[in-house]
């Protein structure tokens, strides 16, 4: 990828991490586990953005949390709340609408050039 594209691409990605978290946390998950899940799902996220983001979403009521002390070390598990599900739904339909609009702008820019 051309280096000068990077900031724009990142800007485009930024909001999608929230959506991905809300969707993935329909089943409870903890910080590092979620980080790996996100990476596997194709959302490249830094740990230092994810952890504060989780806290913010929890504070806004989109996530609920509880401490699980059953395993080798105590971990804070997050789960998408009812309100969070609503947000995820709204973001998802927005994404679909945007994607449609982007497609409607024209076909692949490369083929456009050839015309």
């Amino acid at each position: 990828m051309v280096e000068a594209f990077e900031p724009h691409i990142q800007e485009l990605r930024r909001g999608t991490v929230v959506l991905a978290c809300l969707q993935l946390l329909r089943t409870p998950g903890y910080g590092y586990g979620l980080l790996e899940d996100l990476q596997r799902a194709g959302f490249v996220t830094e740990a230092n953005t994810l952890y504060p983001l989780l806290r913010r979403l929890e504070k806004q009521g989109h996530l609920t949390s509880h401490w699980d002390t059953g395993e080798s070390r105590p971990r804070k598990f997050y789960q998408t709340s009812k309100r969070g599900l609503g947000l995820a739904e709204a973001m998802h339909s927005e994404w679909l609408a945007l994607s449609k609009s982007v497609d409607a702008l024209g076909d692949d820019p490369l083929t456009n050039e050839e015309k």
């Binding site: 590092y32 586990g33 740990a47 070390r73 804070k76």
Partner: peptide, 17 residues
């Protein structure tokens, strides 16, 4: 009080991995 134990676990998880 909130951040300390969570960060602790997250770092330990990452190191372990």
């Amino acid at each position: 009080a909130e951040v300390r134990p969570e960060l602790h676990a997250s770092i330990a998880d990452a190191v372990e991995a």
